[in-house]
């Protein structure tokens, strides 16, 4: 599974200058977007003192750790250590950079670069939410598997939503997309998603 893409967010939810924590099957990560829109994906912990990089901030094309300001470029190379302003950080001070891509209204990450690009969805981002149930339970209810966006019909909605599941262990993130619709239809879809979540979670409690 590690050679395939994992959807981690809808594109509008990570604008330029943003950094979000991501739970990947192989560990905790940070995904951030530079001022010019470039996406990067690193391990969550700053190698200096282990602070979460998602608590940091993006300045231009670099992310800064909130703790001591160590600054990494989009490839993961440390470019600045504020406590030593005259030091050019050596090449050995760097963080691992994972493949990250944007397609179909979704942001995707992978542990190693997959052979093919992530899939298109032909739909527009709606919203992401987390279901407090394992992916197997969501798959059973929705009929789609993690990492492969697919149409799911929910009660009271005229058209199916496109759901992309992200396996997070005991929880599952659902990234929902919708064919172009007005705000009333999008709000109705959001409420249907909330009801879907309650139904899946209730089943989980009963099981």
């Amino acid at each position: 599974m590690s050679v395939s893409w994992t959807p981690v967010a809808l594109t509008p939810d990570l604008p330029p200058g943003g950094a979000v924590p991501v739970r990947a099957p192989w560990g905790e990560l940070v995904v951030w977007r530079s001022a010019t829109g470039r996406l990067s994906c690193f391990p969550e912990r700053c190698p200096h003192r282990g602070m979460r990089l998602s608590h940091g901030f993006v300045r231009g094309e670099m992310i800064s750790c909130i703790y001591h300001g160590w600054r990494y470029d989009t490839a993961g190379q440390c470019r600045k250590i504020p406590a030593h302003p005259d030091l050019e950080p050596p090449a050995a001070i760097r963080v691992h950079s994972y493949p990250v891509a944007e397609a179909g209204g979704l942001i995707w990450i992978a542990k190693t670069l997959p052979e093919s690009a992530p899939p298109e969805t032909g739909a527009e981002p709606l919203r992401s939410l987390v279901i407090a149930s394992p992916a197997s339970a969501v798959t059973e209810a929705a009929g789609v598997v993690p990492g492969v966006p697919g149409p799911v019909s929910l009660p009271d909605l005229a058209a199916p939503l496109i759901l992309a599941l992200q396996d997070m262990g005991e929880e599952t993130a659902v990234h929902a997309l919708i064919t172009p619709a007005d705000s009333a239809a999008r709000i109705a879809a959001s409420r249907a998603l909330e009801a879907f979540r309650r139904a899946v979670e209730a089943e989980e409690i009963a099981a």
Binding site: L10, D13, P15, G18, R23, S128, L129
Partner: peptide
């Protein structure tokens, strides 16, 4: 209670 999984809340706080 971590706030990673709440994209609209994160953007609102920003």
């Amino acid at each position: 209670v971590e706030l990673g999984a709440w994209p609209r809340i994160r953007l609102w706080m920003r």
